[in-house]
């Protein structure tokens, strides 16, 4: 069997360790896998649609872009358990002047990188649906590693810190970071609270073109789903990638982001 070529975006060389472990396991299972790394998702989307790679480990925005540009010509074949039903929070100081979404009008809201689904695009869409139009507040974005779709938490963290310094009335972040940062001391939950949360959405997804051969897809999924959190080697990779189990891909969790992209004019031809 020819190797299945998987594309992945790297923001840190340590992330390559994840793919080394996955590649070694796939080889053991008789499904050779090669990885091509990209600096940003635009390049990866282009490579997938151009047939240079077989499978793309896509951010949610890269999935939406792939579907939009290909006219629905992609399939979502697998995702992490932790990619499902995520939410983003808009966080404010407790006891401050902002008690409801409408109170944010005329104030500054801190967002992550401009292309971060979880810390920018989806929260803006959520606020719009709550009656707070994009022009009615000042958006302060923290553009850390644009092109990586918010994979790096730097932008989200800087947004939170700006709010903590009093430079913004609110900041936006994914639920996983809220949980982590209120437990590790980064954010004191007695001083800050969730003002509003978005609806559920899905995150990263393995994406293939419609024409990707079914037998190769089945081999890929068979090996992927054979990864076991009880196996210490797999656990190292799964902890690094933040999952306990691989799940089938689904496309029902991208409505919020698709709407956000449409409203904010994000998806553009490559």
């Amino acid at each position: 069997m020819d190797p299945i070529i998987v594309g992945a975006v790297l923001y840190d060389p340590k992330v390559s360790v994840i793919w080394d472990i996955i590649g070694a396991f796939f080889r053991e299972k008789g499904t050779p896998l090669d990885t091509v790394y990209y600096t940003n998702y635009e390049l990866q989307v282009r490579a997938l649609l151009g047939g240079h790679i077989d499978v793309a480990w896509n951010s949610p925005l890269a999935w939406v872009q792939s579907q939009a540009i290909s006219g629905g010509g992609c399939r979502a074949i697998a995702m992490r358990d932790t990619d499902r039903d995520r939410r983003s929070h808009v966080v404010v100081p407790r006891g401050g002047p902002v008690a409801k979404v409408a109170d944010l009008a005329g104030r500054t809201i801190a967002f992550g990188a401009s292309d971060s689904p979880q810390a920018t695009l989806i929260p803006i869409e959520h606020l719009r649906r709550q009656g707070l139009a994009a022009g009615s507040y000042e958006a302060r974005r923290f553009d850390v590693l644009v092109g990586k779709h918010g994979d790096h938490i730097g932008g989200e963290l800087q947004a939170l810190q700006a709010m903590q310094r009093g430079e913004a009335a609110a900041s936006c972040l994914i639920d996983l970071n809220w949980e982590a940062w209120t437990h590790d001391g980064t954010c004191d939950p007695t001083k800050y609270e969730i003002l509003t949360s978005t609806g559920p959405y899905d995150h990263c997804v393995f994406t293939v073109l419609e024409g990707f051969p079914r037998d190769r897809e089945e081999a890929f999924l068979r090996a992927l789903h054979a990864m076991d959190y009880k196996n210490p080697t797999h656990r190292e990779m799964m902890d690094l990638e933040g999952l306990k189990r691989w799940e089938p891909g689904r496309t029902t969790g991208f409505e919020l982001l698709t709407s956000a992209c449409r409203e904010q004019g994000v998806v553009s031809p490559l």
Binding site: L10, P13, S16, V36, Y37, Y38, T39, N40, L43, Q44, A47
Partner: peptide, 11 residues
């Protein structure tokens, strides 16, 4: 430039 060592496309 560690990403260059990995042949990252775009680096």
């Amino acid at each position: 430039r560690p990403l260059v060592f990995l042949g990252v496309v775009g680096e």
